[in-house]
Computed example of a mutant assay.
Amino acid sequence: MDNFMTHIVSITILLFLLITFLQSGIDKLVDWKGNLSWLKEHFAATFMGKMVPLLLLVVLVIEVVTAVCSIIGIYHLIMDGNTYFGTLAMFLGCITLLLLLFGQRVAKDYQGALTITCYFIVAIFGLYVITP
């Protein structure tokens, strides 16, 4: 119980990242065609228009890896106080959000970029909190 209380902020942020990226990854898997169709239209007028399927796959993989690292990170924080996987999850979350932010800015979707910024603030704060 000591480890839980010591790392409660990091655990809570990891739960936030877990929910965010696991749901997003599941949505991409369940509705691949719908996501792909929407994104192709969203990026049609950009240099990324023809790369959408590959980019969607890259984001999906990083999201799933981030979610798995979040689960492992929560476990290790509670069981032995080890921060390695928690730190990795938060860093991957930041990288994923930066990739998404880049895409939204390229597509000139500034409202979407603003939304991602809110998530990024939580992730970067988590990285700050968990880093010794």
Rank of each mutant, 00 (worst) to 15 (best):
D2I: 15
N3T: 04
N3E: 11
F4C: 07
M5D: 14
T6V: 11
H7L: 03
I8T: 14
I8P: 08
V9K: 09
L14H: 00
L14W: 06
L15A: 10
L15W: 14
L17H: 08
T20C: 07
F21T: 06
L22G: 07
L22R: 01
G25I: 00
I26V: 12
I26A: 11
K28C: 04
L29C: 07
W32R: 04
G34F: 08
G34T: 07
S37T: 15
W38Q: 15
W38P: 09
L39K: 12
L39Q: 14
K40N: 10
F43L: 13
F43W: 14
M48D: 12
G49V: 01
V52N: 02
P53L: 01
L54P: 11
L55A: 08
L57Y: 13
V58I: 13
V58P: 04
L60C: 03
V61L: 12
V61G: 11
I62A: 08
E63R: 12
A67R: 01
V68F: 07
C69G: 02
G73N: 05
H76P: 01
L77K: 03
M79Q: 14
M79N: 14
M79V: 14
D80S: 08
N82M: 12
N82K: 13
Y84L: 15
F85I: 06
G86M: 00
G86P: 01
T87K: 13
L88G: 05
A89F: 01
F91C: 08
F91I: 01
F91T: 07
F91H: 04
L92H: 02
L92S: 03
C94K: 04
C94S: 12
L99T: 11
L99I: 14
L100P: 00
Q104V: 00
R105E: 12
K108G: 02
K108N: 06
D109N: 11
D109Q: 09
Y110E: 10
A113M: 05
T115N: 13
I116H: 09
I116D: 10
T117E: 06
T117F: 11
C118K: 14
V122K: 00
I124P: 02
F125C: 09
F125H: 06
L127I: 03
L127S: 04
V129Q: 13
V129G: 08
I130W: 05
